[in-house]
C-alpha cells in the first residue's frame, strides 16, 4: 500500500516561504512526477514527504496514518538520491542489505532479498565490488536496489538521472518505468526535465514558486494546459505564446500554438523569414521571424528544404490554438 495525502502542507525557511500550502493526493501504485523549473520547491516537497525536513504546517499522511511528525526511518519510504548517496566503504551487497540490517532482518532472508534485487537489476556480478568501481548507471541501479529490498510503501526519486549522460538517461528512464510496471508500488519522481515527466508519469504535478500549477496525465497537460506557465513548460520545443492584436482577434490576451501545430503554406497566414533551420532527418525545426507575431518555433516535416533567409507563410492548425486570458488562465 502507498497512498500519500498532503493537506495544506507548508514550508518556510526562516522568513522565506518556500511552499505556501499544498494539497495533493497520490493514489496507491501511481507514478507521480513533480516537475518544474529549479527553485520551484519540488525537491523540498519531496524531502518533506521523506521526513528529511520538518513541515511548517499541514498534515502528511501515508496510508491514512498521520506521518507529519514521524522520523524518516519510520515512514516506510525509500529514496533514491541525485548523487546516488551510496556508502562508499561498503560493497554493493552490503549497500543493498544495509536497510535490512537496520530493520534487524535475519541474515538469510536479507541475503535472499538482496540477491533477488540484484537479479532484477543485473547486478549479480558486481555484488562484491565497492561503489567506486562501478559506472554511473550501475551505481544508479545499486541505489535503486537498496530502495527496493525494503519493499517500501513508496519510492521517492530526487532527480536520479541528472548525473548520467544522455544515452544512459534514456535507458534508465525505461528501466525505472518497467520497474514500476512490475512492482506496482507508488513512485514519486522529481525532475526539472519535462521529457522525463511526459514519458514516465501516470500523473504530472507541475510546480512553480512552491504552488501547484496543474495536476494531470501527460496528455491532459499537453492538450489542455490550464495556464500559460504549464503551456510553456510542457512540450518540446516550447509552445509559441503570442500576444497583441493577433490574440485579441480571437478574444484572448495570449494565444498559444505548439510548433508541431503550425503548417508551412505558400501564402496567407503569418509571413516571415527563416532564421535558423535544424535538419534532424525525422524532423525539421525552424525559427521563423514573422512580420507581425514575433519569432515562432516551427516543427516541420522530415525533409523540408528550407534554408536560412527563405520566406515562409505559417498557419496554425484548426482547433489547435490555445487561448489564455489576461490572468494567464486558459479560456474555455
Amino acid at each position: 500500500m502507498g497512498k500519500i495525502t498532503l493537506h495544506d502542507v507548508r514550508k518556510n525557511f526562516g522568513a522565506t516561504e518556500v511552499i505556501p500550502g499544498i494539497d495533493l493526493t497520490i493514489e496507491n501504485g501511481e507514478f507521480v512526477v513533480f516537475v518544474g523549473p529549479s527553485g520551484c520547491g519540488k525537491s523540498t516537497l519531496l524531502r518533506l514527504i521523506a521526513g528529511l525536513e520538518d513541515t511548517s504546517g499541514g498534515v502528511i499522511s501515508i496510508d491514512g496514518v498521520d506521518a507529519t511528525a514521524l522520523p524518516p526511518a519510520k515512514r516506510g519510504l525509500a529514496m533514491v538520491f541525485q548523487s546516488y548517496a551510496l556508502y562508499p566503504h561498503m560493497t554493493v551487497r552490503k549497500n543493498i542489505m544495509f536497510p535490512l540490517k537496520m530493520a534487524g532482518m535475519e541474515i538469510g532472508e536479507a541475503t535472499r532479498r538482496a540477491d533477488a534485487a540484484a537479479r532484477v537489476l543485473n547486478l549479480t556480478n558486481y555484488m562484491e565490488r565497492k561503489p567506486g568501481q562501478l559506472s554511473g548507471g550501475q551505481r544508479q541501479r545499486v541505489a535503486i536496489g537498496r530502495a527496493i529490498v525494503r519493499e517500501p510503501a513508496a519510492f521517492l526519486f530526487d532527480e536520479p538521472l541528472s548525473n548520467l549522460d544522455a544515452a544512459l538517461r534514456v535507458n534508465m528512464r525505461q528501466e525505472i518505468t518497467e520497474l514500476h510496471q512490475s512492482l506496482k508500488t507508488t513512485m514519486i519522481y522529481v525532475t526539472h526535465d519535462q521529457v522525463e515527466a511526459m514519458t514516465m508519469a501516470d500523473k504530472i504535478v507541475v510546480l512553480n514558486a512552491g504552488r501547484i500549477e496543474q495536476v494531470g496525465s501527460p496528455l491532459e497537460l499537453y492538450n489542455q494546459p490550464k495556464n500559460t506557465f504549464v503551456a510553456g513548460f510542457i512540450g518540446s520545443p516550447k509552445m509559441n505564446l503570442i500576444t497583441g492584436p493577433e490574440a485579441e482577434k480571437l478574444g484572448a490576451a495570449t494565444i498559444g500554438v505548439r510548433p508541431e501545430h503550425l503548417d508551412v503554406v505558400s501564402e496567407g497566414g503569418w509571413s516571415g523569414i527563416v532564421g535558423l533551420s535544424e535538419h534532424l532527418g525525422s524532423d525539421t525545426f525552424l525559427k521563423v521571424t514573422t512580420d507581425i507575431v514575433g519569432t515562432l518555433n516551427v516543427r516541420a516535416g522530415g525533409e523540408v528544404r528550407l534554408r536560412h533567409g527563405d520566406r515562409v507563410n505559417l498557419i496554425p492548425q484548426a482547433g489547435k490554438v490555445h487561448r489564455f486570458g489576461a490572468d494567464g488562465k486558459a479560456m474555455a
Binding site: 528529511l52 526511518a73 529514496m79 548517496a85 537496520m102 525494503r150
Partner: peptide, 24 residues
C-alpha cells in the same frame, strides 16, 4: 546526502554515526 540515505534506510542516529559516518 549519504547520511540522509542512511536515515531513509532506517538507521537511527547512533547507527548512522557508527555504520556510515565513522567508517567513511
Amino acid at each position: 546526502e549519504i547520511l540522509e540515505a542512511a536515515r531513509m534506510d532506517g538507521a537511527s542516529l547512533r547507527n548512522e554515526i557508527i555504520y556510515v559516518l565513522t567508517p567513511m
